[in-house]
């Protein structure tokens, strides 16, 4: 269980020279509380994806300290990260990191078999809700970018989480789809009492954020 995330004077090593001192996150004391929604906005190249990589344990090249419930994540071992990624942290990568050679259903089952979080019926409902139920048995490589984005979002729900990290998740969706997805995500995050960290180039989409932070 992660109740809150604490960033203490964190800055990516490659950005030590260039990161802005006015940044709401870099070089700052920053807290993310479970149950709250945060927008992290900036133009490209300021380190939005890098922040998510740090929080998700994919990269470790930062100065300062990141603490989950006051435990430095630098102390975490592979085993800890595997557990976090299965039960406490869920992410929608900017590039999705889905498997192109698997069908939509296989992509979801792969994750769900690891966590056993959703039933097959629940999964079908999710596909229905995001509007790609008819693509269930289609190989991912034959899906449009926007459709893949929705698969990635459903996959993120295939596990319990305390925080949901979303890295520019709506870049290829029309407004109508964005709105329906935002509603789905908001209700799901609220239902789970989880925190949401969402990055965008400045767009707030259709969320009610508790805090808006500029990198």
């Amino acid at each position: 269980m992660i109740q809150h995330i604490h960033l203490r004077q964190v800055v990516p090593v490659p950005l030590v020279e260039t990161a802005s001192k006015e940044s709401a996150i870099w070089f700052a004391e920053r807290h993310f509380e479970k149950g709250k929604r945060y927008l992290i906005s900036s133009e490209s190249g300021k380190g939005k994806s890098t922040l998510f990589d740090f929080l998700y344990g994919r990269r470790h090249d930062f100065t300062g300290t990141i603490l989950f419930d006051e435990q430095p994540i630098a102390e975490f071992r592979r085993r800890d990260w595997n557990r976090l990624r299965q039960h406490h942290l869920s992410i929608v990568f900017q590039g999705f990191r889905l498997f192109q050679e698997l069908t939509v259903w296989q992509n979801l089952m792969l994750k769900n078999q690891l966590t056993h979080h959703l039933s097959a019926a629940q999964l079908e409902q999710w596909l229905e809700a995001v509007g790609i139920a008819d693509k269930k048995d289609t190989l991912l490589q034959f899906l449009s970018y926007g459709q893949q984005q929705r698969v990635a979002i459903v996959r993120a729900f295939c596990q319990p989480f305390d925080f949901l990290l979303m890295d520019e998740p709506f870049s290829h969706l029309d407004t109508a789809n964005q709105q329906s997805l935002c509603d789905l995500i908001t209700s799901e995050v609220e239902h789970r009492g989880a925190g949401l960290l969402l990055s965008s180039l400045g767009d707030t989409y259709f969320f009610n954020f508790d805090e808006q932070l500029a990198l």
Binding site: Y56, R58, R78, N82, Q86, R97, L98, L110, L114, T115
Partner: peptide
Amino acid sequence: ERIENLSLAGFSS
């Protein structure tokens, strides 16, 4: 890439 993505999905080595 497949292996890295599996790892990021929470699969252990």
